[in-house]
Amino acid sequence: MRQAGITQRVLVLQGVMSQTEARRAARRFLEPVFHHASQIDAVGTVGFGLPLTAWIKLDTGMHRVGFTPEEFAQAYARLSALRGVRPNPNVLTHFACADEPDRGTTDDQITLFKQTTADCPGETSLCNSAGLLAYPQAGGDWVRPGIMLYGGNPFITGNAADIGLKPVMTLTTQLIAIREVQAGERVGYGGKFTAPETMPVGVASIGYGDGYPRHAPNGTPIIVNGQRTQVIGRVSMDLITVDLRGIQATVGDTVQCWGDQLPIDEVAQAAGTISYELMCQMSGRVTRRVVEASE
């Protein structure tokens, strides 16, 4: 990121694990998170020329990484005393259930965070995407939006459009074949789809090797030539098959897997996952094109 010319402050959420990594972070003005005593031990009392701006993580209920409330005061004092770290480290936590309708867990986390860090003068950060939208009262100096930056719904209910989010990622391919399948014939690996009638079936050039979810079942929505239809048969490494009954289509037509015509959250729900996974698993063989807002 620094080599790309990005000069804004950058948090390294998994932190540093050695003096070498700490020295590298200081040299690049990165801000590592300390979430375990072994990191403080590893960095030790050496200086790095430029002191680190450090963050320390308080575990308020996620129980993944971070110091417990009982451990926090001692860990904060140890980190503050390190020669290579600026005084008054910043503090963050992470919400476990902010995406769920029940607010109890997140409210408890906010209360615990504020109680435990009341005497800490540094900056604070609590909110992910769901926390930012549903718990503005959590406050903090920094927020950490993720999925919402891509236009994905951070909640387990509802949809992105309802909360004013727009998709910024569109995945398209094209039809490479259309064929007629007879009633009773099965389509694809394992014959997971049986044609209920003689029907046209399209073949689109995308598969799990590109990042399209292999576990997408029959009925997963897809757009062909601007018309909504469904995936049929098992997703292959390089190909998917689609139902073309009632669809005007020819070989070469555009197929939209998700984007402005089909919310990624809807595809993710059909595939039994979340939109973030679909965004993250795009493989390197998928051509990327950055489109500016004015285009």
Rank of each mutant, 00 (worst) to 15 (best):
G140T: 02
G146C: 12
A183M: 11
P154H: 11
A134N: 12
G219W: 03
N218L: 08
G184R: 09
N153R: 06
P167K: 14
Y150P: 01
T172R: 15
A160F: 09
P217C: 05
G211Q: 09
T198N: 09
P213L: 13
E185S: 14
R214T: 00
N159Y: 03
G211F: 07
P217H: 01
T172P: 00
L165H: 08
Y189D: 12
A160D: 10
A161N: 08
N218D: 14
H215Y: 02
A134Q: 11
P196Q: 09
Y189A: 15
L165N: 08
P200Y: 07
L171Q: 04
P136Q: 06
M169D: 10
G151A: 11
F193C: 07
L165K: 12
A138S: 10
G188H: 12
P136A: 06
P145T: 07
M169S: 14
P213I: 07
L175P: 09
G158H: 08
D210K: 01
R214A: 15
I206M: 12
P200K: 13
Y150R: 13
Q182G: 08
A216Q: 07
I178D: 06
M169K: 08
L171V: 14
K192Y: 10
Y150V: 09
Y212H: 12
P196W: 08
A138F: 03
N153H: 05
G146E: 05
A216E: 02
